[in-house]
């Protein structure tokens, strides 16, 4: 049985889809069998980020409504044999699926794949409830902004009340020079409030934008900073002990980040 991981945030636009695409591709780079599930029904993006938009015939709602078999709706990635996408329906809305159907879908997928990674829509309504229903664990994405951290906190509470404990945190779009000047929340402040384990930090990197437009996740690049950061997260999820770029005792986070990223 594979593992079902949901990527969620509460606030929109913080990098859930980017993280789903990069972690999924990162697992595939290491030969894992992965399926990405776009649970953002009505506002699908993951297919575009993966560059697979033109191959969609059936979607998630077709599967849950029985219009096609699960296998028919899965799209194989262009680059990696072991990577698949289950696209969202674009012409329907979140209420076209319910949490029970998602649970069945996730467990069916987990039979076939090592990792099932679910891209959750923003918000706390039906779409969120659907996306988390079948997940074994959750990764919360936030940016170093007060509003995003507030929403992340709310999401952690909602996950808890659904019996999903111990989510892990990814802080995206860190701009070291801004944190250094005190213009941005630092990692310590975020962890203090959210009190969950930090899985990784993704720097602000224009390569993300470039790669998104190209339909090829950044993690494919051997050099981009964000790529290295995502690869580290993948290794941590596989149980490897990759040092976190956080603060220890006197050594500041920036210092560490500088050392690792070579700023």
């Amino acid at each position: 049985m594979g593992e079902v991981i949901v990527i969620t945030s509460g606030k929109g636009g913080v990098g859930k889809t980017t993280t789903t695409a990069n972690l999924g591709t990162g697992f595939a780079l290491l030969g894992k069998k992965v399926v990405l599930v776009d649970a953002d029904i009505g506002l699908r993006n993951l297919d575009v980020v993966m560059g697979l938009e033109n191959r969609i015939v059936y979607d998630l709602v077709d599967v849950t409504e029985g219009n096609c078999r699960l296998k028919q709706a899965l799209i194989r990635d262009k680059r990696y044999e072991s990577l698949y996408l289950l696209p969202a329906a674009q012409t329907r809305d979140k209420n076209a699926v319910n949490p029970d159907q998602m649970k069945v879908l996730c467990s069916d997928l987990a039979e076939e794949f090592d990792y099932v990674i679910i891209d959750c829509p923003a918000g706390i309504e039906q779409g969120f409830k659907n996306a988390i229903a079948g997940a074994d664990r959750a990764i919360i994405v936030t940016t170093p902004e007060v509003s995003a951290v507030r929403d992340a906190d709310r999401i952690i509470g909602l996950l808890e009340s659904e019996g999903k404990h111990d989510p892990k945190l990814v802080v995206n779009r860190i701009r070291p020079h801004m944190v250094k000047k005190g213009d941005m929340m630092n990692i310590d402040d975020i962890i203090e409030i959210l009190a969950i384990d930090l899985l990784g930090i993704i720097p602000e990197d224009e390569y993300i934008v470039i790669s998104t437009n190209r339909g090829e996740p950044a993690v494919v690049s051997p050099v981009a900073l964000a790529s290295i950061a995502y690869k580290n997260i993948v290794r941590r999820l596989l149980g490897e002990n990759v040092p976190l770029m956080t603060i220890e005792s006197n050594e500041g986070f920036f210092y560490k980040l500088k050392k690792v990223f070579g700023f």
Partner: peptide
């Protein structure tokens, strides 16, 4: 810890072993 959006109402005293977060 009480997270944003969570609420406790109780007629007596309340002791929280954790934080009470914004919201």
């Amino acid at each position: 810890t009480l997270r944003g959006g969570q609420e406790i109402m109780y007629s007596g005293a309340v002791i929280i072993m954790g934080d009470v977060n914004p919201g």
